[in-house]
Amino acid sequence: MKGVRHYPGFLAMTIGCLVVLYAPLIVVTVYSFNGSTSITQWGGFSWRWYADVFTGPEAPRFAAAAWNSLTIAVLAATAATAIATAAAVAMVRGGRFRGKSATFALINLPLMVPEIVTAVATLIFFSAIGLTTGYLTILIAHVTFCIPFAYLPIAARLEGIESSYEQAARDLYATRAQAFRLILLPLMAPGIISGFLLAFIISLDDFIITNFVKGAGMETLPTAIFGSVKQGIKPNIMAISTMMLAVSVLFVTLSYFINRSGQKTRA
């Protein structure tokens, strides 16, 4: 059989897709090093816009937003990972129980519901129970939509672990808790780390839901960028975007390699 490379139109299709997906990113990355104030005309290589992000007039605003984004991402990813781990153990190891498919749908619902609907519903919910929008409401919303992203790699990993390991541990006088802590958790670790990193990235770059539930005066990096862009695009935005892109690529790559190394040691 011929490989996919020999299918008619393969090359054109591939180039088309790559251009649509990555050309904008490349443009942003390249122009973040632009020496001129124009966003379209090249004025030589320069770090000035990176310097501007950290020392320019908007620097305090970006720093506060970055700090919020970072702490929310760490907290939300941690909480979501813990919940997703518990959910994965119940779903994969819990045998058959009533409402199992309903539970699965519930866990993954945030992937299916349009984000704008979640955003509006969450805002209405918070105001209905009288919770003032701010840092806490952002955090709660982020934990919620991060769960399915953390759940997928963790459950996939757990499904690949034979239950005979836990049985062997129980057989060798370990209690349920010991078998989980000493055997299952270390074996699940690559999936858990991978799930955490994914949840972290998802939280870090969320805009729509955050924008609805953040309340006045509260900014995360994406909402701060959006606010800044509304007054016209300046090259410093490209510098911030490029840095966020770098962080995302780093985390996703890390997540991929951790998952893969875990698969290798499993045999």
Partner: peptide, 20 residues
């Protein structure tokens, strides 16, 4: 009884040695 309270031990078909 729970498996950890039974004085019997098992050799599994695919050994189930703890890989870590």
């Amino acid at each position: 009884l729970e498996p950890n309270h039974r004085p019997v031990n098992t050799v599994f078909q695919h050994y189930a040695l703890f890989p870590h």
